[in-house]
């Protein structure tokens, strides 16, 4: 049963210490900023965070890391020009890093949502990121065994939801949203607009509501909902 929360604070209230939290977004696109800020206020500690990056600037995920709430981060690209908060925590030894090639990160998340126990991929074979991992030659090519990454919780941003949790995203802000929604025990989604059920064209739903547990409407200034009228 879908919960429609009134506020971001309400939406993240049940996240417990030690949770693995999948956080959507690639750069600013699709970053669930208000949900991350609410998680910071909520106070859960010892989190394992899965995100493509390790925070930018001083807000959002960077603030969560800066407050010492993140025990471990699983990501592909932590080091950036404005990742100073992660950099400091990493150098101080207060955060653990699991570095994963971006496509392996995505596929490991997808595998968790799809009930796959792992997969062999050529990406990373013969590199230091494959050290200690099982390998196999398949059709003459080296492959590395990668395991699924499931979350206790996912924090995602989409453009529009209906009242059964179907989601439509916007442009490249889609990025990790659909796979994280499927891979988490509880998916919490912030959307710009919640529309009445029946107004999203079923042909255009990207994430079916079965993967979504909580939605919260947060007006981020993007006015146009993705309703059928819009799409025709």
């Amino acid at each position: 049963m879908l919960t429609i929360a009134d506020t971001a604070e309400q939406a993240v209230a049940d996240i417990t210490d030690g949770s693995t939290v999948l956080i959507g977004g690639f750069g600013p696109a699709g970053q669930p900023v208000e949900l991350i800020e609410a998680l910071l206020e909520q106070g859960a500690r010892e989190l394992v965070v899965v995100n493509n990056n390790a925070g930018n600037g001083e807000t959002g995920l960077a603030a969560l890391i800066g407050a010492g709430r993140v025990r471990k981060i699983i990501c592909s690209f932590p080091r950036q020009s404005d990742s100073q908060i992660f950099d400091a925590a990493y150098r101080a030894g207060t955060i653990e890093l699991e570095l994963v090639p971006q496509g392996n990160l995505a596929e490991r998340i997808r595998a968790a949502g799809a009930g796959i126990g792992g997969f062999f991929t050529p990406t990373g074979y013969g590199t230091i990121l494959a050290e200690g991992k099982e390998t196999r030659i398949i059709n003459g090519r080296g492959h590395v065994f990668e395991t699924p990454i499931a979350g206790d919780v996912a924090l995602i941003k989409a453009l529009t939801a209906d009242r059964v949790g179907n989601l439509v995203y916007r442009k490249t802000a889609r990025n990790f949203g659909p796979i994280m929604a499927a891979a988490a025990g509880k998916s919490i989604v912030q959307v710009s607009t919640i529309v009445d059920t029946g107004r999203l064209d079923p042909e255009n739903v990207v994430t079916p509501g079965i993967y979504v547990n909580t939605i919260v409407q947060i007006n981020t200034g993007h006015p146009e909902p993705a309703t059928m009228e819009e799409n025709q």
Binding site: S76, F77, P78, Q102, L129
Partner: peptide, 8 residues
Amino acid sequence: IPAVGGAM
């Protein structure tokens, strides 16, 4: 600090 992104 290592960062691989989509390079591999």
